[in-house]
Every structure is written in structure tokens, then in C-alpha cells.
């Protein structure tokens, strides 16, 4: 259970560090920063676990060293994935953004006004441009002689999601 306890501590530190950094430093691309912090946290878990395992005070785990380490890694993965999902929901949810725009108009908005006012007046087209910029920035799309194409990595991910959509009828 040492692995799980260390995962909880390391994740809490990573989360706090990410929040502090987000408030203190001005930066444009927030998603890659989040990913870097969480990746650093996961590497941090490996280092902290390896260090803790060498301490005489930390005895042999009941479940064995490898299983203890692996279940801690699962705990770390669970927290990291949960935080990334929750953060993404708060940062970019289309539905929540509409709600925030609607609260500023006590008399209500027409569909066209919602489309034009979307995200502080940036409009719906901006919403799509933002996603495309993010995909370009993440190396999923590439501009090639005036055309936008999938990169090999994006092709792999899109193929996997297409297959999952068929199985889960999620398309």
C-alpha cells in the first residue's frame, strides 16, 4: 500500500504545483503545460517510489514490491486522468460556455445571438478555429501545400477511436 500512499502524495504536489504555476505565470497554450505537469508527476512517482523502496523503514510490502509499485502507478494514473478530464471540462466545455454567456443576458438570447456572443463575443467560428489550432499545435494535423492533413500519430488515434465508436455505437 506504500505505492498508493506515495501516488496520493505525489499527485497532490503535482496538482498544487500546476495550480500555482497557472496563477503565477502568463502563458497561452494551457493544455501542453497541464500535460507536462502531469507527466512530470508520473515520473516523480517513479523516483519517489524507488527512493522509498531503498529506505530500511519501509518494509517489504505484503503484496510484493512489483505489485505494490504497479498498483501505486494505477492510482497515479487514475488521479492524473481524472484531473485532466475535469480540467478539460472546465476549460473547454462548449455546453458550460453557453451557460456562462446566457447568465449575462437576463432577457434571454436568440440562437443567433448565442452563436455570435459565444465565448465573450468570439463567435462559434472561433470555437472551431480554436480546436483546429489545438490539433495543429498538438501535432495531430499538419498544413501541407495549403491542405490540412492528419499526421501519422493522428491517423493511429483516429483509427482507434473510429473502431471504438463502432463498438460502443458512439459515433
Amino acid at each position: 500500500m506504500v505505492g498508493v500512499l506515495l501516488a496520493i502524495i505525489v499527485f497532490a504536489v503535482s496538482l498544487a504545483a500546476h495550480l500555482v504555476y497557472s496563477h503565477v505565470v502568463e502563458f497561452k497554450d494551457k493544455e501542453p503545460v497541464l500535460v507536462r505537469f502531469m507527466a512530470a508527476g508520473s515520473v516523480g512517482y517513479l523516483a519517489v517510489y524507488a527512493t522509498a523502496a531503498m529506505l530500511p523503514a519501509v518494509g517489504a510490502p505484503i503484496v510484493g514490491r512489483f505489485v505494490d509499485f504497479a498498483t501505486g502507478l494505477c492510482a497515479m494514473g487514475f488521479f492524473v486522468l481524472g484531473y485532466v478530464e475535469f480540467w478539460s471540462l472546465i476549460e473547454r466545455s462548449f455546453t458550460l460556455r453557453i451557460l456562462l454567456d446566457a447568465v449575462r443576458a437576463p432577457g434571454g438570447l436568440t440562437r443567433e445571438q448565442i452563436a455570435n456572443a459565444y465565448s465573450d463575443g468570439r463567435g462559434l467560428d472561433w470555437m472551431m478555429e480554436k480546436r483546429i489550432d489545438d490539433l495543429l499545435g498538438a501535432g495531430m494535423l499538419v498544413k501541407d501545400e495549403g491542405h490540412v492533413r492528419l499526421t501519422p500519430r493522428a491517423r493511429l488515434i483516429a483509427g482507434m477511436f473510429g473502431w471504438i465508436q463502432q463498438i460502443l455505437r458512439a459515433g
Binding site: 486522468l81 478530464e85 470555437m127 480546436r131 495531430m140 483509427g159 477511436f161 471504438i164 465508436q165 458512439a170
Partner: peptide, 20 residues
């Protein structure tokens, strides 16, 4: 995560359609 991204993410839908 995969399920929610499959049904909710605009970016994933765009990638899957481009792939198709």
C-alpha cells in the same frame, strides 16, 4: 475517458471523419 471523448469531443469527431 475513451468513451466520453468518442461521443463528446469535437476534435476527436473531426479526426475520425478526416481519417474515414
Amino acid at each position: 475517458f475513451i468513451y466520453a471523448a468518442s461521443i463528446g469531443s469535437i476534435s476527436i469527431r473531426l479526426l475520425v471523419t478526416m481519417h474515414a
